[in-house]
Structure formats: C-alpha cells, structure tokens
Write a protein that binds this DNA or RNA. Structure first.
Lengths: 195, 195
DNA sequence: GCCTCTATTGACATTCATGTTAATAACATT
DNA sequence: AATGTTATTAACATGAATGTCAATAGAGGC
C-alpha cells in the first residue's frame, strides 16, 4: 500500500490505467467481485478514487475494461496453447488445461453470474471454437459429437476452477489424484474418438 | 409487490421466515448475490427491512439460512434421484441431471465464489459421494477412476448450469443438440466403464 | 522563466444498505 | 374487557460507495 505524503506522482494515462487495472485484477482474485469498488481499488493502489473516475469514467466502465483485458488474455492464451501442437489428439487436453489455469474459469463464471448473459461480439471466440471443432471432427468423428466434447471440456474446466478443491476433498481425492484429472480426461476423450 | 395501506399483517415466526426466504431465493435466481440485501428482499416481500433483522438477526444470518435451506434441498434432491434407480449404470447420469437442474450448480458456484471456501461439516455430502463411488467401483472399476468420473460429472454439471447457454451458443450447438448433452455424457461414461 | 495542458486530489452531495430503538398493533389468554 | 406477548414498523444514526467540481501541481513547450 503506497503512502504518498504530500508529493503527487504524475503518470502517463497508459501508466495510470495499467496501475489501476493490475490492482483491480489482484483484488478480483483475492476478494471476488466485491473487491472491484473504485474506493477499494484506489486505496490499494495508493491513489484517490477520483483518479479512477477520471481515467475510466465510472466504476462500471473500469470493470468492463478489466474484464475485456482479461478475456483478451484468456483468448490469446488459448490460441497460443493450441498453436503449439496441432495434433488433434491433444487439442482438447490443452484446451482444458488452459481454461482451468490462472483462474480463467473463475473469470468466466464471474462474468456469467454478474451480468446475466455474456455480451455478443465474441466473434473471435466463436471462430476459435469452430476451429477446434473442425480439427477434431476430421477423422470420422460426428460433428455434433465433437461439439459435445468441446462443451464437456469447457464446462468441466469452468467447474473445476470454481469449486475444484472443495469438490475433490468431498469426493475423497487427494492432491496427487486430482492433479491427474486433466490427463485422465484427455486420455478418455481420445478413447472416445478412436472407437 | 404487496402494498399494505395502513393495516399490518401479523404472521407466525415460521410464516415470516418462510416468506422472507422464498422471496430471497427468487431474488437470488433473478439478480444474483446482489439481490440478497435485506432492503431489496424486504421491499419485494412487502415488509420492512427491520422485520428481517428481527427474524434473522442480521443480513449475513439471513443469507446463511437461505444457503443452508438450499443446500439441504439440493442434497435431498440428489438422494431421492439416486434412490429411484440403484443401477450403477445410471447413477452418474442421474447425478449430473440433478446437479445441473434448478440452478443447483449455480448455487454451488455462488457459495464457492462468495465465501472463499466451502465450510466443513458437510459430512452427509461426503458420505453421499462415498456411497456413489462405492456403487460405481464395484464392477472392476479402479477406485481412483470412479472418483475422477464423479469429479467430472460434478464439475461439468456446475459449469453447465453457470455458463451452459452462452457456451453452447459459442460452440454452435443448437437447442436440440444441447438437450442431448446429459444423455450423451451418461452414455459415454458407461462406455468407459465397460472397457 | 513563463505558459499551457491535464493528471491528481480534497471536499462535497447523494444515494443506498445496515442496524438500533422505541412505539404500535395484532392476537391469545384470562 | 383487560392484559401480556411479540411481530411489525417508522424514525434515526451510521458508514460505505459513487460521482461532481473546483483547485492544485507535475511536466513539457515556448
């Protein structure tokens, strides 16, 4: 927590926005949606809340900017992960791993629970999924089946990143078993395909 | 929205608590966690917010009571659904269907995202899961494998009830395809077992 | 050095939610 | 009818968050 005694720090608009958004991201991870008040973010960033209003216009606009940045990051993470290996066999496993890491699933859940529905304009995302499905559906897999596999991977990844730990504890999985979950799922999906 | 002009309605404590909790449940479904303020619930129930304080003691206590009631409902739903058919083949499909219906998964997600971790004392739930796993693991299935299957079903059900519709749209699944998801998953899990 | 631009801030007004308190009214009991 | 219990409410005090406005202070250009 920065404490500025008297002296002001003047940042470029880019620096200021970056400082604010990174602080907000940290608070989102630690305190959930309740952490995204401009007063709270401002205090933790060591600035006044009026500065946030100046740069973003409103609390809601700051949240929108943060979520846009994070979904962009998620999308590029997925794209990069999928680019590394084009093997159809591994794509779903990769997708699962990326979605369930770094709180990506948690972010999507927040998005979905906060605003009641996700906004349109996610053409890149739709294109990405279409790409994955095309790749999977190549070798004799029914196209609907491919879509359902993707849906399974996506929903499971989201559920895992929200509730994974407590659920695993309830089920009686220890840590080493739980860590095998992504690999296990990927293997099972390949099995499905080769039938 | 009830409008009481002058006349008071005096309820038994049970009636009052029931009215408050059912209104709160409706608001939770419609507005998310933000709908669970005592002022909002009171206005929608047509009573004063002080009445809620009188019956529950505090906002937090009202929320706790609501969540306890809803988790109890979820648990009994699952128990009942599983009791209807003891066939190991159908248990996972049943579990999935029950978890993803009526916003049960959504409730669990709220619980997990609001409080950072689920409270302990869920011995009944743990026992329930152990039961399911025992049933599945009977016919030659590795016990860890059975646990992972349950984890998959639980996480997918949760993810589906949070984000199912927008995800299906992104993937390009139409409604009739999406509705086949539970059956598809159940069939795939049986396939896994019979190998 | 002077001037301009604007990022930053403190002070203020407003709104909303929480919780307390004392008074009131509905209902049961006698 | 009188009385006691308590569910209900209005009024109040408090605190937190949002957003506005005018004043201030860095930093660069002249």
């Amino acid at each position: 927590m920065n404490v500025n005694r008297g002296k002001r720090i003047r940042r470029t608009p880019e620096e200021a926005r970056s400082l604010i958004l990174s602080t907000a991201a940290r608070r989102l991870a630690e305190h959930g949606l309740d952490g995204l008040s401009i007063s709270g973010v401002a205090k933790e960033a060591g600035i006044s809340h009026a500065t946030i209003i100046h740069h973003f216009g409103s609390t809601e606009a700051m949240r929108a900017a943060l979520l846009q940045q994070m979904t962009g990051q998620l999308l590029s993470d997925v794209v990069e992960a999928l680019h590394e290996d084009q093997l159809p066999d591994e794509i779903l496993g990769r997708l699962f791993t990326t979605l369930s890491r770094d709180g990506h699933g948690r972010l999507l859940a927040w998005l979905a629970l906060d605003r009641q529905q996700l906004e349109p304009g996610e053409n890149q995302t739709a294109a990405l999924f279409r790409n994955i499905i095309d790749t999977i559906a190549v070798d004799g897999v029914d196209r609907t089946d491919a879509k359902l596999q993707v849906l399974l991977v996506a929903t499971a990844a989201m559920g895992l990143s929200i509730c994974g730990d407590p659920l695993a504890a309830l089920i009686g999985l220890d840590e080493s078993e739980t860590s095998r979950f992504p690999g296990w799922l990927a293997a099972r999906l390949q099995t499905l395909k080769s039938e």
